[in-house]
Design a protein around this nucleic acid. Structure first.
Length: 335
RNA sequence: GGCGAGGUAGCUCAGUUGGUAGAGCAGCGGACUGAAAAUUCGCGUGUCGUGGGUUCGAUCCCCACCCUUGCCA
């Protein structure tokens, strides 16, 4: 009876490896990865759910073309802000570059080893999907919106009842039963595939860990403030204004991106600039905390505590040491 | 200077007809399989402005003082 709910759809994966650098926002992952990619002569795959949007540059702290130098970046600028996106689409794109990087073999650079790709990002879900493989139903926006209507009409309870009707023991296999998103997704998958979403193992000590950069909370908070202020100085408001002219309507996800939501409100005169700044700082802090929680519990992590005074080069050196020591992380890509 | 209003959690404020107090936000912690910068769950001891007085007992009532703020001068 349990098998009925834990059935895994047939899907085949191939295995490869990559060096992975993760961490909360504003810890300096990007500049560190840039240095390492230059030293290792390899490309960078971004694992960041907001860098996928074209034109959303300043507010997402996307590395500029100048900063990228000769390093090839993938996983960025995949869709326009008006297009809906999904984790699955990111995986597909990631799989393409991973296949290429396997084919191209060992990079030219000096020391480090065989993996010819660096994965950097703060989106834990994307990284977990890479290391643990994601085998679940593809996104069905139409089915999802149908259940969204049910939720609006009969609340969280209506969703729980619907799940029970389709899978009598189903609620026992789910966590977070008061989270509409999760129940909506469960129903979406039940309806399209007949199974409930599986649960990942917390972490897998048998594989090489992901290196996770961490800055003491107080220092991180200071850096977040500096970063938000720098965004405004770099013309963030102008970027959003121009982007809105090109794309009048944005996907739900892009519209909720930190900074973009606030600056849109600022442009609509429903928020002062000071209030927008304050909200951006607070939301970024909250994001960073959630990211750390994820990496703490959901990934096999090798933490690297840095300070605000460390230079990117010094940090890169320590990351490289850890990568060399542990070796690249095994990842699974859909065939 | 006069009159009024107010000083309670990091912030905005509620409350106790006298038995030492609780919301929102912030913060902290947790969850997380195709929307994830999303979504969601949990965590509330603080000289109740200071000093006196009344009282078995004061954050609450009384007096003085300090501070903030509004109006009038």
């Amino acid at each position: 009876m349990m098998g009925m709910y834990s059935k895994i759809p047939f899907m085949s994966f191939s295995t490869t490896t990559a060096y992975i650098l993760a961490g909360a926002t504003a810890t300096g992952k990007t500049s560190t990865a840039q240095i390492l990619a230059e030293q290792m002569g390899c490309g960078i795959l971004s694992a960041d759910a907001m860098l996928v949007y074209k034109g959303m540059d300043i507010g997402t702290a996307k590395p500029t073309v100048a900063e990228r130098g000769h390093v090839l970046y993938t996983g960025i600028d995949l869709v326009s802000p008006s297009e809906p996106f999904s984790t699955g689409r990111w995986i597909e794109s990631a799989a393409d570059t991973l296949k290429l990087s396997v084919a191209s073999g060992t990079p030219a650079g000096p020391v480090p080893p065989k993996a010819s790709l660096i994965v950097v990002g703060g989106t834990g879900l994307y990284i977990k999907a890479l290391t643990d493989g994601m085998h679940s139903a593809v996104a069905h926006p139409d089915v999802r919106s149908k259940w969204q209507t049910v939720f609006e009409q009969s609340g969280i309870n209506g969703l729980q009842i619907a799940i029970q009707q389709r899978a009598p023991e189903g609620l026992k296999f789910l966590t977070d039963l008061s989270n509409p998103r999760r129940l909506l997704r469960a129903l979406e998958q039940l309806e399209t595939q007949g199974t409930l979403p599986d649960q990942w193992k917390k972490n897998d000590a048998s594989k090489a860990p992901v290196v996770v950069l961490s800055l003491p909370r107080e220092q991180l908070h200071r850096r977040i403030i500096q970063r938000v202020d720098q965004m405004f100085r770099d013309g963030f408001i102008e970027e959003v204004r121009a982007l809105r002219n090109v794309y009048p309507t944005w996907s739900a996800t892009a519209a909720k991106a930190i900074g973009y939501e606030e600056v849109c409100a600022l442009l609509d005169n429903t928020l002062t600039q000071e209030a927008a700044r304050e909200k951006m700082i607070i939301r970024t802090r909250q994001l960073a905390k959630r990211q750390e929680t994820w990496f703490r519990h959901q990934t096999q992590a090798q933490w690297l505590t840095i300070t605000e005074h460390d230079t990117p080069f010094a940090i890169a050196e320590r990351v490289l040491y850890l990568w060399r020591h542990h070796g690249p992380t095994t990842i699974q890509i859909p065939r």
